[in-house]
Amino acid sequence: MARLRALLPNIILASGAFVVLLPFYWMFLTSIRSPAEIFDVSLWPIPKVFDAGENYARAANQVPMARFMLNGVIVCLGILIVQVLTAVPAAYALAKLKFPGRKLLLTLVIAALCVPIQALALPLFVGLAKLELLNSYFAMMAPFFLSVFAIFLFHQSFRSYPDEIIEAARMDGFSEMEICWGLVLRGSLPSLAAFSVFSVVAHWNDLYWPMIVVTDINLAPPPLGMLFFSDVESGANYGALMAGAAIITAPMLVCFLLARRHFIAGITMTGVK
């Protein structure tokens, strides 16, 4: 009984991991199988006919995969840089400066966390259309420049930075911007890593907004590109489609694994200390 109790958490976690990982495994499996085996329900990792080469070559050659990836990098980096540039000073001000209305502003930030992008899609689309900015990188990035999630995350982390160090810095002659970027953010690098992972993964995988504002295939980020790809193939070649999906998922996996330790430190330390 005691052994079962010790094992129980592991069993629950393992079954959770199984549910989460299965689609990825299935994607990978499909990407190396031949079309004849696609609808085989077996989870056996070695296909009868090993078709990985053909599937991946097809995914890479049929559509401009490199172009999609580049678009994804441009959009994700653009969003991330502007988000950090705007959210860090805002979070610093909310966490460490005294000014009237601070509590109200912080409440508004938290309230804004509850507004989904879908609710804003129509006005944003109309606005971008009136400005004739549709079908541009800017249209894909602009709605995400101000991230209340980033402000909230950095606020939680900055709050625990010792006030006395900030005061010592003021007496030494640091400007508020130097304190904000050079000291406070520097003390919260795990949060920056965590937020970067959240932001890049979310926008790399985003299909919804690019699909609304971009019709030019040359501007498409990877998920939208995959959509064009499946249209071209009229959904027949699942193996190649999954090979494409595997290709666009890989960078995110690498990105997460590199930042994993900081990412975990970042999301666990933003809680109450």
């Binding site: 006395e164 160090i165 005061e167 010592a168 007496m171 640091f174």
Partner: peptide, 20 residues
């Protein structure tokens, strides 16, 4: 006057050294 222009030095209870 701003703190930095008063030419005063302060030693804090927690020492407030720059950690990095």
């Amino acid at each position: 006057t701003d703190p930095s222009d008063r030419n005063l030095a302060m030693v804090f209870q927690s020492y407030a050294l720059y950690p990095h």
